[in-house]
Amino acid sequence: MSVGDYIRNSQIWKSVFRHPAPTDRRNRVVVMLTNFFLHLHPVSAKQQGIALSYTWCMGGITFFLFLVETLTGVLLMFYYRPTLEWAFYDIQALRDVQTLGIMREIHRWGAHAMVITVWLHMYRVFLTGSYKPPREFNWVIGVLLLVLTLLLSFTGYLLPWDQLAIWAITVGSNMARAHPFLGGEGPGFQLLNMGGYDLITNASDAKFLLLGGRFVGEATLNRFYILHCVAVPLVAAGLIAIHFWRVRKDGGISQPL
């Protein structure tokens, strides 16, 4: 008996994989049903529905990039400190000193790539009319995921705390100041007042909420760090789960009806 067979017949192996290798038809069905990671997929699909020239694989690539970002992001979190004192120098050290500093490169390029693949996924879904009934609601969830992807990228943009970062966030967050009613320089904010005092000022408006201050500062760094590493990924993960679930429930992967 070879070593391979010995391992495959051991109790440990069999407790992990509950059936033989997927080499025949029966086991190829069983593996899809019993494996947690594979059960996202159906057991079988139409050939043309999974053809690369049809799907472009952009949704799958987006999800894979989300996983890459999570993995590299967690590794970066071990190293990076989101404070005015250290943020910039930690990133600099990742570039100049640290052996695995390339994690930052992969994280940043993966983020750019993810924004692009989300767009392309959406483009393909539109072009194949896959948002049409019964998949209307999953398209809506997809749009929300697009927003979250942009939000993840935007909040992460600040963390290196260099000139590029704070000025991009300053330009972006200046929009919040102009929010109708809720921004200190937006139309209609004067209408929200109580006894002659404005409720919306530059210390209580939408921009202040976003930045945790009047300008991009330490509070902003902390706020964006939490949003980037915890809050937004959690929401995104939840919506991704629903998105996948609905793909299966709303008529399966896209193909001619």
């Binding site: 910039f88 990133i91 490169e105 390029w109 990228s153 290196p160 705390w161 260099d162 000139q163 000025w167």
Partner: peptide
């Protein structure tokens, strides 16, 4: 991609030195 192209890192943030032009993230 990560090996070939270094991620950008400019000077440390300074709230008094406004770059011209100041651009939002590309997307």
């Amino acid at each position: 991609w990560g090996v070939a192209l270094e991620a950008p890192l400019e000077e440390p943030a300074s709230s008094v030195k406004t770059p011209n032009p100041s651009k939002a993230p590309w997307y």
